[in-house]
Amino acid sequence: MIALCVFLAWASAFWAHECLQPRTNKLFPLTTGSKRLYQCVRACAPALALLLCLYRDFEEGVLYCLGLGAVAGLAVSLLMAALKHKQSGQL
């Protein structure tokens, strides 16, 4: 369960990061409030993920955090690529 939460925390951080990039803003425009929220998520979610991992297992927590983070980043990267392709195809 904690592993799932860590994965989702990292995924949301990566999602927020990609949404804040100018190239994504063109396809999926953001309001000022959304930008602030995404910036918050991008800053806080990885820290939350690390805390959860250290709580689960102090010795191996960093390994869990980085490993789940990398896999989450890859998953979000693939999802974003598919969504952008679909969106640019519809435009």
Binding site: F14, H17, E18, Q21, R23, L66, G67, G69, A70, G73, L74, V76, S77, L78, M80, A81, H85
Partner: peptide, 30 residues
């Protein structure tokens, strides 16, 4: 800025370069 940028539907060299960069950057600590 290009942390998780991946364009598999773009031109082939670009797609391969993005695959190389995404895996390299995300799994760099490992």
């Amino acid at each position: 800025p290009d942390l998780i940028l991946f364009r598999p539907f773009g031109p082939r060299p670009r797609a391969w370069l993005d695959a190389h960069l995404v895996t390299g950057v995300l799994f760099l600590p490992f």
